[in-house]
């Protein structure tokens, strides 16, 4: 026992902890800046906190005015909901078609020419960068009110995103697969149809489902600016201070979006199990 403790004493005398390498303090600085910027932003926004309180009271009051929901306009509302659904379906499908056609020449590993790929990608990111609602506003000015405008806006938004993600899926393909077919002397179209499409199909499908989910949400609100569908019913009711009617519309919208999310979760699960 005594021998052991002297041994330990010796070790303690001899051992010196290595010097700690300089820690990367980037994160600490970033956090500090974030906290400062947070308070600076609050100061700049200069909220009227009295209004925050009175507004919350008013908000809760509005909520009480909403119940019970007024379902007297249900035929009208459901027809509008159906229209929103149809707008989402058509917009997504056109978006998928455009995305599918443009993704192959845009993917770096199979593009016929790098410039083509660069052009398509730039175009897609431009489409993507402008929110769907702003596209809807542009189309309203250009082609007028109605569901057709909604379809165009959704198509543009969906195409912008799908070109990007489809391209990424294609670029993730193992180059060996393409090389093997190239070695057999296959042409561009046969490489795409024989090697590329079968490999990326599952990924494409799950992106399509995800996009439809998002488009369903978008199409319900497009109506707020006059592009057809259920969003218009909501704005209309709110502007007339008919909160109970608005609540019914909101419930319908929630159910629509929520059930699409449920179905798409199911589909994703099934695809996971298969693929």
């Amino acid at each position: 026992m005594r021998i052991e403790s002297t041994y330990k004493q010796n070790i303690q005398d001899r051992l010196e902890m290595p010097i700690k390498p300089k820690k990367n303090i980037f994160l600490q600085i970033a956090l500090l800046v974030a906290v400062l910027f947070f308070f600076f932003s609050l100061y700049q926004l200069n909220f009227d906190y009295a209004r925050l309180i009175s507004g919350t009271g008013a908000f809760l009051e509005t909520l009480t005015l909403m119940v019970p929901p007024d379902i007297s306009q249900w035929q009208h509302v459901l027809a509008a909901a159906l229209e929103s659904f149809q707008v989402a379906v058509l917009g997504t499908i056109f978006g998928i078609i455009i995305g599918f056609v443009l993704a192959f020449p845009a993917a770096d590993n199979i593009t016929p020419h790098p410039t083509v790929a660069w052009l398509i990608k730039g175009f897609a990111s431009l489409l993507r960068a402008i929110p769907t609602l702003i596209w809807a506003l542009i189309f309203i000015v250009a082609v007028g009110l109605g569901p057709f405008t909604g379809i165009l806006a959704i198509t543009v938004g969906a195409a912008g995103m799908l070109v990007k993600v489809f391209t990424q899926s294609i670029e993730e393909i193992d180059y060996g697969v393409i090389e093997a077919l190239k070695a057999t002397g296959a042409g561009w179209f046969s490489i795409v149809s024989q090697a590329v499409i079968p490999t990326v199909l599952t990924a494409f499908l799950s992106w399509c489902i995800l996009r439809f989910e998002a488009d369903m949400g978008e199409s319900t609100i497009l109506g707020a600016v006059g592009a057809g569908g259920i969003g218009w019913e909501l704005t209309h009711a709110m502007r007339a201070y008919k909160f109970d009617q608005a609540f019914f519309v909101a419930v319908v919208i929630f159910l629509m979006v929520f059930s699409v999310e449920l179905v798409s979760n199911r589909l994703k699960m099934r695809m996971k199990n298969i693929g």
Binding site: A58, T62, T220, F254
Partner: peptide, 21 residues
């Protein structure tokens, strides 16, 4: 998540008035 943000905003604007709040 499922009630689109636009709807929340319309609701909130009715109570708090327009603006950054």
């Amino acid at each position: 998540r499922n009630i689109p943000v636009l709807i929340w905003t319309i609701l909130l604007a009715a109570a708090y008035g327009l603006g950054t709040l």
